[in-house]
Write a protein that binds this DNA or RNA. Structure first.
Lengths: 140, 140
DNA sequence: CCGAAGTTTGGAATGATTTTTAATTTAAAA
DNA sequence: TTTTAAATTAAAAATCATTCCAAACTTCGG
């Protein structure tokens, strides 16, 4: 999406757009790295040296409330964020920790066993695939 | 497993068995609540008032190193622990947060899409089912 | 029992995240 | 534009889970 359109889109959602927020939106737009708050902060800091963590966290929350950013609970040490709100699954490299995306709907295959059918009503599912990314499979 | 056997089992694994550790093992044995460290601490505290968090965390680590306890990364706010090391999946009630178990192997169904096959080598998978537990589906 | 090695403890330290504060900036109406 | 209420900012302090620490204490093999 063109930058001007991205800005318009968020303005329409009631987000006051400050230079810092625009920098964060730019950073997140199309980003598939599943950055942590700290990584967003560092990424912005280069072009926006005075930005504070509070701004990053505020913006993360504002985007989450608007469904534009999803919290990813995969790394036990910190939260990661995914600017793609479309349901999808994740690949986690057990060696380097990199998180990749899997766009495929496994819902039909993921049926609960008989004995649980009456005990839990499923509304969504999420699969984590653990293993090695191509980088770590090779030499290093 | 009988208590004496549980104790023998851990002694064989090179764990010195202190009263605190025995209390933690008793608390975890057969527990399907996926407790957090704080919940383990509180559960032990009643019978073992001087226990410290450090001991709880130390024991968690010792058990994890021996494959007897699995860290469950589902709740973004804290780590939870599962004394069942057998691979399985989880139900997460979006309302009350309760975590349940699903013993079923979905591996055959969880094939990566063609374009990812050469890019990531999967060694295991884990499915989270989100929805409502029976308790939360009804009145409350 | 003795002693070495491993444990426990309470409190301090750490690290991620959230809240607070006072000052600044914004959107939008006049 | 100018105004103004509401939102945003940076910096610092607060919070919460978790880890570290040094000293005192246990366990268990011999």
């Amino acid at each position: 999406m063109a930058r001007a359109n991205v800005i318009q889109k968020y303005r329409d959602k009631g987000l006051k757009l400050t230079p810092q927020r625009i920098a964060i939106l730019d950073f997140l737009d199309g980003n598939t790295d599943h950055p942590s708050a700290e990584e967003i902060f560092s990424g912005i800091k280069q072009t926006n040296p005075t930005i504070s963590f509070a701004t990053v966290y505020n913006t993360i929350q504002a985007l989450r409330e608007r469904g534009e950013l999803v919290e990813v609970t995969i790394d036990p040490e910190r939260k990661h964020y995914d600017p793609n709100p479309e349901p999808h699954h994740h690949l986690i490299c057990s060696k380097c920790g990199k998180i990749g995306d899997v766009f495929e709907d496994f819902t039909d295959a993921l049926k609960l066993p008989q004995e649980l059918l009456g005990k839990f009503s499923v509304t969504s599912n999420h699969v984590n695939f653990y293993g090695a990314c191509i980088n770590c499979s090779k030499g290093n």
